[in-house]
């Protein structure tokens, strides 16, 4: 464990808490993409199947359980409890355009052609593009609530911090996982224009609006 990975995990946990807070406090999931949240739940489900078989550490097990529980909790809030506030008209990104190619790629490019490894690879590739429906939704509505922008900033920062973690582990532990690194870079790059808007607007106290 290193400081980059720890802060990355904390940023990830913060993002999930911010989203749950937003939905619970405003009793609305307006501006949140249900498709992205469905894909995040799929990411955690396919990545943490070894939760039972591989015990790494108490931290690892606890965080995995929190991530899985919170992702399904978010789906519950969005599609059951506050379903009436789900903005399906603006959440129109075609998920199959992401899931199908990602599934195909995970069969073609992986470290080991075993079920657990292919599912892990699928989850890594899927996570790198899972935010697209959310970013697409913001581009369609042209704006995002401030707390939703904080959620996205924390979510985008987590994988950026993981990239620093991989640099650290490469030099100090000789650890290197090309699939995770490439997907992590793609994932972080997708946030760049959001990061720019967030830093130039939200940090100045303005609302996050996209130039028309």
């Amino acid at each position: 464990m290193n400081v980059f990975r720890l802060t990355g995990d904390i940023a990830h946990l913060l993002a999930i808490i911010l989203l749950l807070m937003k939905i619970w406090k405003t009793r609305s999931c307006a501006g949140v993409s249900g498709k992205s949240q469905m894909m995040f739940a799929l990411v955690f489900t396919t990545r943490y199947l070894d939760l039972i078989t591989n015990f790494i550490s108490l931290y690892n097990t606890t965080m995995k359980m929190i991530f899985i529980a919170s992702s399904y909790g978010t789906l519950y809030l969005m599609f059951l409890k506050f379903r009436a506030t789900y903005d399906s008209n603006h959440d129109t990104f075609r998920m199959e355009f992401l899931v199908v190619p990602v599934a195909g790629l995970s069969f073609l490019v992986n470290h080991d052609f075993s079920p657990l490894e292919i599912l892990w690879t699928f989850s890594i590739y899927l996570e790198s593009v899972a935010i697209l429906p959310q970013l697409f939704m913001i581009s369609k509505t042209g704006e995002a609530e401030t707390i939703t922008s904080h959620y996205l900033f924390a979510l985008g920062s987590y994988r950026a911090l993981y990239i620093l973690n991989w640099v650290y582990r490469f030099y100090f532990e000789g650890f290197f996982d090309l699939i995770a690194v490439v997907a992590g870079c793609v994932q972080t790059v997708l946030y760049c224009d959001f990061f720019y808007l967030y830093i130039t607007k939200v940090w100045k106290g303005k609302k996050l609006t996209l130039p028309a």
Binding site: D50, T53, N54, I56, N60, H111, D112, L116
Partner: peptide, 10 residues
Amino acid sequence: IGLGKKKDEL
């Protein structure tokens, strides 16, 4: 299910 190499990252 074969046990993948230990993955210690989340």
